[in-house]
């Protein structure tokens, strides 16, 4: 899908105009959704169907409450921890397995199986072993994100030209030179893709875990509003979660494009 920038603007002014145009195109879809939502809410005119302005006002109220802010901090902290753990462990395991065609063939099926099963049904098992608390949420979020990273990095390592590594052995290159000249150019594009995918999966796992059982967190806040049918609060918080996810999402996508362009894929 290489369709982002058909025209490559050369000048500084041209480039900033290009950036503005692409941001404009990005904003169209949310604008359409927002307008559609407002029109529907005005037509239905019901207490259980709040409009965007009302929902955002409720979100403002929520944001001024210390309990809600505590939930944001808790979710963001666990997300960052689970995500970085998934990236580190997934990359190392994927790299180690990918170096050998044999062992990657052995581990590919179980890793793919673990990736494709609905892991949410395993969450009670995490609760049984780790108890209700940050440990089970963190581990579950990690577990949700680690397999695609391992699979992607494993595939990239396996398709890397191993003759370069043999050459590096012959030349007795130090490890940092190998890293800079061989490993990073070969693996970085796949690693950034994996990092981006893992972000979404880790966050999804975390929100799922919080909705099922947790003392705090954004998922917990959402579910606690369902019992009281506070639809306006729920809608405001959904918008908040979406914004919280979309900004790193676009940043990661942008970084991925730059790295892929630089090193090729």
């Amino acid at each position: 899908m290489s369709l982002s920038t058909a025209v490559t603007p050369r000048t500084q002014a041209g480039r900033s105009r290009g950036v503005l145009a692409s941001i404009g195109w990005i904003l169209i879809l949310p604008a359409v959704i927002l307008i559609g939502w407002a029109i529907t809410a005005a037509t239905v005119d019901s207490l259980v169907f709040p409009g965007p302005l009302q929902s955002l006002a409720r979100l403002g109220e929520d944001l001024s409450e210390p309990g809600f802010r505590q939930s944001i901090v808790s979710t963001v902290t666990l997300l960052l921890a689970g995500w970085s753990l998934a990236v580190i462990v997934g990359t190392l395991v994927g790299f180690a397995l990918g170096l050998s065609n044999f062992w990657s063939a052995v581990f590919e099926t179980p890793l793919f199986a673990l990736y494709s099963i609905p892991k949410v049904t395993l969450y009670p098992v995490f609760l049984l072993f780790l108890g209700i608390g940050d440990a089970s949420r963190l581990t579950f979020a990690f577990f949700h994100g680690v397999f695609p990273i391992a699979l992607l990095v494993m595939a990239a390592t396996r398709s890397m030209d191993k003759n370069f590594l043999k050459l590096a052995d012959v030349l007795v290159l130090p490890w940092y030179t190998r890293l800079r000249l061989i490993l990073i150019p070969a693996l970085l594009p796949s690693i950034v893709t994996a990092v981006r995918i893992a972000f979404g999966l880790t966050l999804l796992g975390l929100i799922l875990a919080e909705m099922f059982s947790a003392q705090s967190g954004l998922g917990r806040e959402l579910v606690s509003n369902v019992a009281n049918v506070r639809v306006d609060h729920i809608a405001g918080q959904v918008v908040f979660i979406a914004i919280l996810a979309v900004i790193p999402g676009f940043a990661l996508r942008w970084g991925e494009k730059r790295i892929t362009r630089r090193y090729g894929s």
Binding site: L29, V48, G249
Partner: peptide, 27 residues
């Protein structure tokens, strides 16, 4: 359609879609 949707196709799975579920249930 491509210009509007393409940036979101790649970013969509960063959003925990599941957060919509309580909203859908409430409605």
């Amino acid at each position: 359609a491509r210009k509007t949707l393409d940036p979101w196709l790649a970013t969509y799975y960063a959003i925990p879609t599941f957060a919509l579920y309580p909203l859908l249930v409430a409605l």
